[in-house]
Design a protein around this nucleic acid. Structure first.
Lengths: 212, 212, 212, 212
DNA sequence: AATGAATGAGGCTTCATTCAT
DNA sequence: AATGAATGAAGCCTCATTCAT
């Protein structure tokens, strides 16, 4: 079946908000990219801000769902952490546009819509925080100021959206494996480091976002 | 002597561009913040984009100068790397607005001004890359894909601008020391890790940006 | 049917550009005259300069078309010349606004649009030049420096737009007939001078511009 | 002695008003052309409109003075008319900028300043009108509707400012002589036509405007 | 004599949005 | 479902002008 107009609007917004920013993207830009008149856009979105909020909620929701699925039933802190890192990195590598919008445009949202987004993000970061804390308690990790470390690692992994290209030499698995090593080292995990189950992570991302 | 109007314009732009983004900041916003009429702004800037470009060139220039000073004469790779990290982190912690503008608004620049900025950024990142390479050659670091690691660490350290607050419990030295540990661990440096000379790094930042 | 908004914009521009000049006419003036908001103007024009260029191309095109029709099949140089003069004068008398804009605002156009306008004007003036040359060769006219004479006569006839009023005592036919005499005398045509076919000229102007 | 700043302002205004029109010329353009700051302009002019009005009064005054001198004591209508034409043409050829400003920018003046200019222009045109009437009474000219003829000839002769170039092949005397012939023919003067005294006309222009 | 600083008003154009069709 | 027409507000920037120095 052909792509619906509503879907085209959504895709146009993701593409343009990522490339030029929310304020840098005009309604006319969206209309052109979606192959609709600017008046017709309003059949598919509320306001421009509603469109942004929808994208952010949806993308963050998928990220959170993915993370929960990836670590469900996993108790070993290093494996949990490795999977969180891999999932985050794969998501940012496969969906750089959605994740850039989520990471860069929160400030645009007015307080109403912002609350839901921030709650999702906090829930997501709590997963990381709890995993780090569990690793510390279990003696698997060694880092003072774990919250600082958590923030540092999240920024590190999210940065992938800003430079990774699927057309480059680096495969998704190599990328995710590398970042897992960096993160576990930074957390002071015992060597030798075991790689997280990347097959699961890839599959979870596919289940949440669709096949690559 | 009082702060000049030109200085007020510059400061207003840094503050607002960082908080709301270039496209999210209107000329009237700048004028209000700078306590001038919007017409008067144009005595001190060319176009709004010129103002942005000036801020970016200046800030990146200071960052690069600071980094060069911080590692001048230092040959030990771990010490060099630690200083680069500390300088980067301290700069981003003390000047979150300037560094956010530099990190987030490059895409706004039209090709003319963008070239100068990208060149400065490349020169800066080259410093990091060369230091990592030197550490690998010397056997001090152990990481495959050093280019990926370099990007990961730069993102990690730059993220400080997005959350650090001088009013929080964490001192600049603690912050910088912590990040140096994270980075050196990620690079596979030999334990025990020696902290870089933070006094020098703080002093260099002060020499480049003025006292805290 | 009522006059469309697009037509109102065009008419407003012709009226105001003629009366106050392109640079003397503001967007708000146009909007008020066209009974639209200034934003709505932009549904019907590109830029203000595009609007001017369109008016000039259209008006010059009609003038050229009219001249070609008026002299089609006419071989006698004096009759050809008389018709060119009459057509020019009648056009300038009936459409003083369009012709004033064409005559006065060429300098405003940027090089792109200017070329098309200048080409039309040159084609039109070539008609005059060729007719004068033909009259000289035929011994019907006697003037040294025919190029100078051509310019002089064009200026003389175009000036009608600056003073003629349909509400005055002078009819269009009297006006055109008088100018034909002036022009043919200046060209050294043999007396007695035959008047050009004004019925044809009037009809051609009506065919090109619409009925009076 | 060097050119004074006031003189530079005047010259800048004449040049730019002629080239770009009053509304097309900004205060900053004037300042740059006059090599002054825009604030300094205001030591030498009142408002921008005062500057224009001064130029127009002065230029028209010189034109009128010149015409009066050129025909002083001359009684023969053809000679008078020839001199008026020659003076007008030479003036427009030698001072195309001043005359273009006078001819094109009257509409800009507000009613106060406009009255003086229009009075001068009327006085000047009266000279032409009276000379034509005298020629008709004397049987030297033959034209119905002499006022129309007068307007036509004035437009014809004034057009010289729009195309004549001193660097072209046509000398001032040839130009003026040619136009005198055109005008006298149009007025129905008896052939053979005697050329007006161009030496006197040239000298009068020089006395009024300075040497070439 | 000259100007840097300053501004209210206005320049042209685009903004996001609504509504009748 | 789709859009042409329409707009108030705002976008960035320049206007002519004043004034303290």
């Amino acid at each position: 079946m052909a792509v619906t107009s509503g879907e085209r609007v959504r895709r146009a917004a993701v593409k343009l908000f990522a490339a030029k920013g929310f304020h840098g993207t005009g309604i006319r830009d969206l209309a052109q990219e979606a192959q609709l008149s600017s008046a017709s856009l309003y059949h598919y979105m509320g306001t421009k801000e509603d469109l942004l909020a929808g994208i952010m909620r949806d993308s963050l929701g998928r990220l959170l769902t993915g993370a929960e699925r990836a670590v469900a039933g996993v108790t070993d802190p290093a494996e949990r952490m490795g999977r969180l890192v891999a999932l985050h990195v794969i998501t940012h590598a496969r969906r750089p546009e959605e994740t850039k919008v989520v990471d860069d445009e929160v400030r645009v949202l007015s307080s109403g819509a912002r609350r839901a987004v921030v709650e999702l993000r906090d829930a997501y970061e709590r997963l990381w925080g709890e995993t780090i804390e569990a690793g510390l308690r279990a003696g698997a990790f060694h880092t003072p100021r774990p919250e600082v470390t958590r923030k540092a690692l999240l920024e590190m992994c999210g940065g992938v959206a800003r430079w990774y290209s699927a057309r480059g030499a680096l495969s998704l698995d190599e990328l995710a494996g590398h970042y897992a090593v960096l993160a576990l080292r930074a957390l002071g995990a015992r060597e030798p480091l075991a790689a997280p189950d990347l097959d699961v992570c890839r599959a979870v991302v596919a289940s949440v976002w669709g096949p690559a």
